[in-house]
Write a protein that binds this DNA or RNA. Structure first.
Lengths: 212, 212
DNA sequence: CGGGACTTTGACTTCGTTCAACCATAGTGG
DNA sequence: CCACTATGGTTGAACGAAGTCAAAGTCCCG
């Protein structure tokens, strides 16, 4: 097991090149992304400390996505073969890998619904809810001000819109007093109102949930 | 293990209600779908004979999607607890469940890219490629005419557009001679041209692929 | 103080939706 | 056998949400 540091914007893993190693994010914030033929970017998931970034490397061939740090990060790497061996020897490990893989798929489905069938305002509100939930796992700030660690461009890449439109929709949510923005920080006066605007129900994240 | 038959449009499984059983599709064609608050539908995956429809029921709580037959179907049901037991006792079973779960997630990511960052024409071409690949697993028709088993409305629900626009884009693909439409059947004069138009690379399906 | 990255704003364009009408086909019952 | 209905496909015109382009504005950091 090796630790490696990355600075903002670095690739922690790359699409297309077979990788014989799996990574867990131990510090910082990272995303998975894919590119279209014309170079447009789609962010397909958000990751904080503790998240497995690419355990599929232990079971599938070449990865289908890039992993990119959004701020300075530390990740710890383990041989894919070690993960495979562990999964084969310890049913509990296999089980927790399964839970995490199914949860990833579930989150992906919610994102598909978001991208395919909701308008920009709802989509953005939904994204903010998931983002806040995710970074809240690392503790709520005392003053209720969450740092928005993604640029508006990156938020656009996650929600399928342009940076300009993200800006306008953030403004719209602000005039509705669903969020308050102070530079790179936002606070949410009424979380339930924002969840409502984003049709957000965190059930799909399957947090600490599982069957006997 | 029980067999059950469904007619077109039936729910094989439903979102939100905890299910203690897992299903494999044995005949027909089905989709998974999710609904927005306003009732708009998003189809999130396609399934043919042999596909596991909801093995996540064995490891997660309530399902996050509906499963609906698109034509007459037969599915075979197994107790979720039996799947759990098998996965715990037989590493090879756990491993194949993992491969299938990771593959599902991979496909979902490609759909996200499609929905979020590609225009209607490319999106539709991509969808057709995946659809044809999927039904080709059941054998190619001798005359090269594939039955389009989804209505234009359903194709729209899968690609995030309206039925009207699906119609127009199908027409567009036809005038480009990327496809030929004859009623409910289509043929593809040059598969590579269509794949190119849809930026389609089936790698993400991870067909019969895996790591040692 | 200057430069770079990010945000904000406005004017204009475009892609896809909406609405409405019409057509085609297949199934049903008299 | 034929009217009758239902479902799905086709087409056009008008509209609107989001994209594009371009110019300022802000903030941070060296």
């Amino acid at each position: 097991m090796t630790l490696r540091s990355f600075s903002s914007g670095d690739f922690i893993g790359r699409e297309g090149r077979s990788a014989s190693t799996c990574a867990v994010l131990t510090r910082g914030f990272a995303v998975r992304q894919k590119l279209t033929g014309s170079g447009d970017r789609q962010i397909v998931s958000l990751h904080g400390p503790g998240d497995a970034l690419n355990f599929q490397n232990a079971f599938l061939g070449v990865p289908d996505y890039d992993i990119r740090s959004v701020e300075d990060c530390v990740a710890s790497f383990v041989d894919a073969s070690a993960i495979r061996a562990l999964a084969a020897e310890r049913p509990a490990v296999a089980r927790s890998l399964l839970i995490s893989a199914f949860t990833e798929a579930s989150t992906a489905r919610e994102w598909m619904l978001n991208l395919g069938r909701r308008n920009a305002r709802t989509r953005l509100a939904h994204f903010l809810c998931e983002y806040l939930d995710r970074i809240s796992l690392q503790g709520h700030p005392a003053d209720g001000k969450y740092e928005l660690r993604l640029s508006q461009e990156q938020i656009g890449d996650a929600t399928g819109m342009t940076a300009v439109h993200v800006n306008r929709m953030l403004k719209a949510l602000q005039t509705e007093t669903l969020i308050k923005q102070l530079g790179r920080f936002i606070s949410v006066p009424n979380m339930y109102a924002l969840m409502d605007a984003g049709e957000y129900n965190p059930r799909y994240l399957h947090l600490q949930e599982s069957n006997a």
